[in-house]
């Protein structure tokens, strides 16, 4: 496992990802420390979401190596060499990553409670009683203890997203990915979701990687803000520095455009 506490929990090494002609990640090098809260901001189409998607194994990178908790994610060791990972290896390594999606992606045929217990019972082989007890605690934590028996179609967008957060937490990930989790919500429902994420950030032990357009929120919860454009990290640093006195011209132009209104 982890060699020492300063070793990154996630490391992108020279990672390239393209879709046909379009290159969305260009030889990306990028680290996340254990328990670090990192926000990725940047223009739309800049590849921010792709960083999360290759890390969640939803997209396969064309080149480079991604390390999670000291293990290669898309590769496995064969002697000294790295060969493409088997399904078994992928499943082992991605167990420490969780993800919350823009469009929730709850299972519509399961109640809120079963959405949260499903994977712990069938993937982690947790006893049903324990999984349910934990799910009730998690749903309580996201403020939905009165919605256990509700189906997703009976919940508001904000409630759905909070169930989705509880569902991801139930797998006890070391790194949690939040992919524009408030972008599909009505404005009045954004706050309740951000409050839950803020609480998670304050608890601290889990690394969090967020792609968001909520600049105020990013400034408040992040240890580090990464400005990402055209497949590369343009500038990164503590939120005060990136938001307060950005050095790069592209960063300045972007914040001028988004923060003015």
């Amino acid at each position: 496992m982890q060699a020492n506490s300063s070793a990154p929990i996630v490391r992108f090494e020279n990672v390239t990802k393209s879709f046909g002609e379009l290159t969305v990640l260009r030889q990306l090098d990028f680290d996340v420390a254990p328990a670090e809260k990192v926000t990725i901001v940047g223009p739309s189409g800049s590849g921010k979401t792709t960083i999360l998607r290759v890390l969640m194994t939803l997209e396969k990178p064309n080149d480079g190596v991604i390390w999670v908790n000291g293990e290669p994610l898309w590769h496995q060791k064969s002697g000294d060499k790295l060969v493409p990972a088997s399904e078994k290896h992928l499943r082992k390594v991605r167990g420490s990553i969780g993800m919350v999606f823009q469009h929730f992606n709850l299972f519509p045929h399961m109640t809120a409670l079963r959405n949260v217990t499903e994977a712990p019972i069938h993937v982690l082989k947790m006893p049903k009683g324990d999984a349910e007890q934990r799910a009730v605690e998690l749903l309580q934590k996201v403020g939905l203890s009165d919605k256990l028996g509700h189906y997703p179609s009976q919940l508001s967008g904000g409630q759905k997203q909070r169930v989705a957060i509880a569902r991801a937490l139930a797998m006890r990930p070391k790194v949690m990915l939040f992919d524009e989790v408030t972008s599909a919500l009505d404005p009045e429902l954004v706050g309740e979701v951000l409050n839950v994420i803020r609480e998670l950030a304050e608890e601290g032990e889990m690394a969090m990687l967020l792609v968001t357009h909520e600049m105020g929120f990013a400034r408040e919860v992040s240890d580090r803000v990464v400005f990402f454009d055209k497949g590369r990290v343009v500038e990164q640093g503590p939120p005060e520095q990136i938001f307060g006195s950005p050095q790069n011209e592209r960063t300045k132009a972007f914040f001028n455009a988004v923060l003015r209104h």
Binding site: M56, I97, E118, H122, V123
Partner: peptide
Amino acid sequence: PSGQIEASIALNMSPGLMMRRV
């Protein structure tokens, strides 16, 4: 919807489990 498959992968389900339960 592809989101159902992505959620199943994010919850580390095996392809068989995803087919049967989702």
